[in-house]
Simulated assay, not measured.
Amino acid sequence: MTKQTISVQLSTTKKQKPQTDQLEFGRIFTDHMFIMDYSVERGWHDPKIVPYQPIEMDPAAMVYHYGQSVFEGLKAYLSKEGKVLLFRPKKNIERLNQSNNRLCIPQVDPDTVLEGLKTLIQIDKEWIPTAEGTSLYIRPFIISTEPFLGVAPSKMYKLLIILSPVGSYYKEGIHPVKIAVESEFVRAVAGGTGTAKTAGNYAASLKAQEVAESLGFSQVLWLDGVERKYIEEVGSMNIFFKINDEIVTPALNGSILEGITRNSVIYLLRQWGYSVIEKKISIEELFAAYEAGQLEEAFGTGTAAVISPIGELMWKEHHLVINNGQTGKIAKQLYETITGIQKGAIQDSFDWTIEVDSIRL
């Protein structure tokens, strides 16, 4: 694929930047965004960076009616030396194309997307917060834009990348959260779109999340959509359990999203000498381990929260208080190691980080 030149239009009016202690997750956006369009005739074309602005689309744009959309999430960090670092961005773009394949969206050129992403971040570098637990969240996404009400893959698409300075995803931060095991609603099934990062998966999760929050829980633990017994994900994160000196995580089964943080955690744990088992694990098996005193830790992993310790699970009438409701040693070590690598405070011996090079505008 021929390398495309990215045009740049800088904003003439800069936004006021928020105070670090006022940062929430995903409510404030930077001065610029990246856009690239697709048509059958031209393929992906016209990559550009423009001032952050609304996009105008026909009311019949297919994304509004049939939900043909995919997205990714990753972060940029500023090291103490002033280097802008990205954590495994090529894996995100690889997964974006996997989602594209499932949703019948044309593949994007990874080099063009990475160059656009890096250029955008360099332009809005001053938006990267530096306080503990903060970062610049990056949201690439693709939507179908053809004005057509027939049920078929769109022939027109728009790829955008927007940036948002963020604080912790959960107000609890690295402190343990309370999770309710979901027994009524289903997130995804094998053969569906659970392995793709697509908007519909998250829309399907909202009702259970709403109910859980009304009961005082931070998130839900999803069970499989067929037998309603096997553990899959926690909220929008992958999940890990330390059971009797082994680390257990649900095996990828066609309905679980393959997380980049999940991949990193498994690699680190094995490097540290832990036995990591990827397998089907039922909620009954987990409860039996808890009753036997063998469930020592539980935590979720994902881009937004990185590591989210679980202090309590509610399943039916059972309240499983894990590690006395405290952050476990492994969760803490993983969080400190991954965030240390992400911010350049710990040596990256795995080649996971990419430095955003300076550009000339």
Score class of each variant (00 low, 15 high):
residue 155 K to F: 08
residue 152 A to S: 15
residue 154 S to P: 05
residue 164 S to C: 04
residue 169 Y to E: 13
residue 186 V to Q: 02
residue 155 K to A: 08
residue 181 V to T: 08
residue 176 P to K: 07
residue 182 E to C: 02
residue 163 L to P: 07
residue 173 G to E: 00
residue 180 A to D: 08
residue 181 V to Y: 06
residue 175 H to T: 10
residue 184 E to T: 13
residue 160 L to Q: 07
residue 183 S to L: 13
residue 170 Y to D: 14
residue 180 A to G: 00
residue 184 E to V: 08
residue 170 Y to W: 10
residue 154 S to I: 05
residue 172 E to L: 02
residue 155 K to S: 08
residue 165 P to A: 12
residue 178 K to Y: 08
residue 160 L to T: 11
residue 157 Y to F: 15
residue 160 L to H: 03
residue 177 V to Q: 05
residue 156 M to P: 04
residue 155 K to T: 15
residue 173 G to Q: 07
residue 155 K to M: 02
residue 177 V to A: 08
residue 152 A to H: 08
residue 158 K to H: 00
residue 173 G to A: 14
residue 174 I to M: 00
residue 185 F to L: 10
residue 172 E to P: 06
residue 160 L to C: 14
residue 174 I to N: 02
residue 173 G to M: 02
residue 175 H to C: 04
residue 176 P to D: 03
residue 163 L to G: 13
residue 169 Y to D: 09
residue 187 R to G: 07
residue 177 V to N: 09
residue 154 S to Y: 01
residue 164 S to G: 03
residue 188 A to H: 08
residue 177 V to G: 08
residue 161 I to G: 01
residue 163 L to R: 10
residue 171 K to Q: 14
residue 177 V to C: 03
residue 179 I to S: 10
residue 153 P to K: 11
residue 179 I to M: 13
residue 175 H to N: 15
residue 169 Y to I: 06
residue 165 P to Q: 06
residue 184 E to A: 11
residue 174 I to R: 01
residue 181 V to W: 07
residue 185 F to I: 07
residue 173 G to F: 01
residue 177 V to E: 02
residue 170 Y to M: 09
residue 156 M to S: 15
residue 187 R to F: 10
residue 155 K to Q: 13
residue 158 K to G: 00
residue 181 V to A: 05
residue 178 K to I: 12
residue 185 F to D: 00
residue 182 E to Q: 01
residue 161 I to M: 06
residue 175 H to W: 04
residue 175 H to D: 05
residue 186 V to C: 04
residue 167 G to V: 11
residue 153 P to N: 12
residue 160 L to P: 03
residue 159 L to M: 15
residue 158 K to C: 04
residue 155 K to W: 01
residue 181 V to F: 05
residue 179 I to Y: 13
residue 188 A to F: 12
residue 154 S to T: 11
residue 159 L to P: 13
residue 166 V to F: 03
residue 154 S to W: 01
residue 173 G to D: 04
residue 171 K to V: 13
residue 153 P to D: 14
residue 175 H to A: 12
residue 187 R to Q: 11
residue 180 A to V: 11
residue 173 G to R: 05
residue 160 L to D: 00
residue 159 L to R: 12
residue 186 V to K: 05
residue 165 P to D: 04
residue 153 P to V: 13
residue 153 P to R: 14
residue 166 V to W: 01
